[in-house]
Design a protein around this nucleic acid. Structure first.
Length: 770
RNA sequence: GCCCGGAUGGUGGAACGGCAGACACUGAGGACUCAAAAUCCUCUGCUCGAAAGGGCGUGCGGGUUCGAAUCCCGCUCCGGGCACCA
């Protein structure tokens, strides 16, 4: 293809100039208003893929646009550089995770720079830098002191493939590991937790004030899963003073409680079980103990496996004795591990009652003609003594009051959200900075002045599943900071989601040496005005980062910093190929480099902007290359158009064709400004193409040649609005028009006259009879 | 099962309740050229028609409205999230 200009040469030139001039480096004393635009920092898996390109194209557009609008835009970049792939590579090849990771970072950084995305590289962060590790550990210790980090024995998700514990969030719905696909099993282990549940209410309520996609907010609400209800005691028949505590959100249905169910692990199972029922009950318990959560919750007979314990409790409302069952469908970890069963108003209870022949008493009048099983909708209370005639809401309140008056129950709130399990039995992560004193001091935090605790390099990477740290005697054996006696180091490392929970704060002040960041500086930039990333982080990362920011404020590390880190969130769509997500692991990557080498970065960027709405998923198809070529052709056309007619330009008063061009110019600025503000980048590009068509027609058809002032205004406006989208070409063409040293990216964003931006004539459509 | 989101030409997509299909890609024809590439110009929803012109069209069925791709009700299909959470 014959080239109008040397794309690669131009792109190299401007990338070098932006870096050399520090065009996008800003400091806290910058007089311009601060603005923080951030793309989620990437895991360095090697050269950039199209997902990165898409992400950074959007982010870079906003950085350059806001800069032209006169803001001091904080635009940092870093690498989420701890994680499993580097360690697995070490086990496979023997290469140390650090050298492996540094090489991947170099590749990714080079391709991000080749894209022409601009960052303040002075602020670069790598999670595995000792300076970052140090403050990661510093924060952990403050959380430990504040009771937000604690150690507990807990049933944990153990992935046999990864040989490590997984967070609840890392286990997929089908019970498999999100990374390896192995079936996750349950184990009891001593682990470190962050007390995320302490912030459950704030994490839920503060969502309302965030400009986030509604579906992300919904996902977080569901994940937190707040439900209001009551807990109350059921007297165990035959055991004076012994009670079984249940949780329900429907105390209004209590008169319909015809049996109770306890989880197989419930501590009262032994007491409740009679000799004659023991064999069946033991069988249920054995099955539950060995099966994974997956097995317990799926399969043909799933859900309705259970057995009568032989024991009874008293329904305090009816004063009747009801049987107690043990069943899989009640979970020990939620509520009290025991439920009151109301088959008439709960579908699971209904199903179970059908299988086990248990009685049904309706307490809510179903609508006329209702023929289903459980009725869970609204209606008038019946068969419920003092609740009769009330609606559900009133009956709930009345029943809760009654339980409180009787002294056997209280209103409570339950959450689906659990504390964040952060221990990982891996090497390539941030060491948890505590020691276990053999002398009796117990768990002791490493003193601040001894931070960072760094993992030693001389370890062996073996596929044993154990962390190499556990077998490194020099690392493991240490002295207790408190009594100087012998002690053992914690060998677990932190979940990498810890690293990504505060990096955006470190970016504000990455030079701080005595603390994670200066809170005054952080408060200057925070919150992030626009956060951009993939929808796959809708729950995990975004919830953890929100928790962390609040906890940092409350532990005195970040006083004055806003409690919500990301005021606006944009989640871009996924890139699919052949119906699958495009990813390295699926082996269907189309690397950006081949486009940098052919049509250039600007054309690829323009393609990603043009192809469709940024939030939508996009399919990479056989046609895609043609569209990318089309974007390249458009940019060459802009290059030729803006160079047009340097001599014998007509001066003086504009004629009607010139005025029409002027109107189109103002219309272009108005349209692109509006489109960029509302993230409608595809129509912004379309408007530029449309305008180029019109400009070309003007050059062809204008009487006596183009009118100098009108043409100049049009060409300049086109380059200015294209500058955030195709930064290299715009800069080069601008310099050609305005002389060496001229720089489009330091120009102010063009303004428009609203009166001129409207077309002069409108077609009036008259419709008759519809 | 529950909760979101989506469905518009051959393709990606556009359209504050007001000319459906902007802008592209593909395709067809033409100009330039010895020829090709590049570039430029014209056409390109389906359908009837030689043309002028007509009919039909935004997943399906209803409704509101002078007017619906857009709002409401009921479906179908596709994508995503959650899933014994009491």
């Amino acid at each position: 293809m014959a080239r109008a200009y040397d794309v690669q040469e131009v792109e190299r030139k401007w990338q070098a100039r932006w870096a050399a001039e520090g065009t996008y480096e800003i400091d806290a004393d910058d007089p311009r208003p601060p603005r923080y635009v951030l793309c989620m920092y990437p895991y360095p898996s090697g050269a950039a893929h199209q997902g990165h390109v898409r992400n950074y194209t959007f982010g870079d557009l906003l950085v350059r646009y806001r800069t032209m609008r006169g803001d001091a835009v904080l635009s940092p970049f870093g690498f989420d550089s701890f994680g499993l792939p580097a360690e697995n590579a070490a086990i496979r090849t023997g290469e140390h995770p650090r050298t492996f990771t540094d090489a991947r970072i170099a590749e990714l950084k080079a391709s991000v720079q080749a894209l022409g995305a601009v960052y303040d590289w002075r602020r670069e962060i790598r999670s595995h830098d000792p300076a970052y590790i140090r403050f990661n550990q510093y924060i952990f210790l403050r959380f430990l002191e504040a009771g937000l980090a604690y150690r507990a024995e807990a049933p944990v998700n153990w992935c046999p493939g990864c040989q490590t514990v997984l967070a609840n969030e890392q286990v997929l719905a089908d019970g498999t590991c999100e990374r390896s696909g192995d079936v996750v099993v349950q184990r009891e282990l001593e682990q470190w937790f962050f007390r995320t549940t302490a912030y459950a209410d704030e994490l839920l309520e503060a969502l309302d004030g965030l400009e986030w996609p509604e579906r992300v907010k919904t996902m977080q609400r569901n994940w937190i899963g707040r439900s209001e209800g009551v807990e109350f005691d059921l007297a165990v028949v035959g055991h004076d003073g012994l009670t079984l505590r249940v949780f329900t959100t429907r105390p209004d249905t209590s008169f319909g409680m015809t049996y109770a169910v306890v989880a197989p692990e419930h501590p009262l199972v032994d007491v409740l079980t009679t000799a004659e029922q023991r064999p069946v009950v033991d069988e249920i318990r054995r099955a539950a103990a060995t099966a994974s959560e997956l097995d317990r919750t799926s399969g043909a007979d799933a859900g309705k496996r259970g057995a009568f314990t032989g024991g009874h409790v008293v329904n305090p409302f009816t004063r009747e004795q009801i049987p107690v069952y043990v069943a899989d469908y009640v979970l020990m970890r939620y509520g009290t591990g025991a439920i009151m069963a109301v088959p008439a108003e709960d579908e699971r209870d209904w199903d179970f009652a059908q299988v086990h022949g248990l009685p049904v008493v309706r307490t809510t009048e179903p609508p006329e003609g209702f023929e289903g099983g459980a009725w869970t909708g609204d209606g008038t209370k019946i068969n419920s003594d003092f609740l009769d005639g009330l609606d559900i809401a009133a009956a709930k309140a009345r029943a809760a009051d009654w339980l409180q008056e009787q002294g056997i129950g209280a209103r409570t709130v339950n959450y689906r959200l659990r504390d964040w399990l952060l221990s990982r039995q891996r090497y390539w992560g941030c060491p948890i900075p505590v020691v276990y004193c053999s002398g009796g001091c117990g768990v002791v935090g490493v003193p601040d002045e001894d931070l960072p605790v760094l993992a030693p390099d001389d370890v062996e990477f073996l596929p044993t599943g154990e962390s190499p740290l556990k077998r490194h005697e020099g690392f493991r054996h240490t002295t207790c900071p408190r009594c100087d006696g012998p002690a053992e180091r914690e060998t677990d490392t932190m979940d990498t989601f810890v690293d990504s929970s505060w990096y955006f704060l470190r970016f504000c002040d990455p030079w701080a040496e005595d603390r994670p960041f200066d809170p005054v500086v952080a408060a200057h930039y925070m919150p992030v005005d626009q956060y951009i990333g993939g929808i796959e982080h809708a729950i995990l990362h975004l919830l953890y980062a929100r928790f962390y920011t609040k906890a940092l404020v409350d532990t005195g590390i970040a006083p004055g910093v806003p409690r919500e880190p990301f005021s606006r969130l944009f989640t871009q769509g996924m890139i699919r190929m052949d119906g699958k997500k495009m990813s390295k692991s699926k082996g269907n990557l189309v690397t950006p480099q081949r486009y940098f080498d052919s049509v250039g970065a600007d054309a690829l960027r323009l393609f990603h902007l043009f192809v469709g709405p940024p939030a939508d998923d996009m399919d990479w198809t056989s046609q895609t290359d043609e569209v990318i070529d089309g974007c390249g052709r458009f940019l060459e056309r802009v290059w030729r158009l803006t160079a047009e007619a340097t001599s014998d330009r007509r001066q003086g008063e504009p004629v009607s064709a010139d005025v029409e061009l002027q109107r189109a110019t103002h219309g272009l600025i108005a349209k692109v400004t509006d489109d960029v503000e509302r993230w409608s980048f595809n129509t912004a590009v379309a408007a530029c193409m449309s305008f180029a068509n019109q400009l070309q027609q003007y050059l062809r058809e204008a009487p006596d040649g183009p009118h100098g002032p009108s043409f100049d205004a049009a060409a300049d406006a086109l380059l200015l609005v294209l500058a955030p989208m195709a930064p290299h070409l715009s800069a080069e063409a601008w310099e050609r028009r305005h002389g060496a040293g001229a720089h489009v990216h330091t120009r102010p964003w063009p303004s428009f006259d609203p009166a001129l931006a409207r077309p002069e004539t409108v077609t009036m459509v008259v419709q008759i009879n519809g």
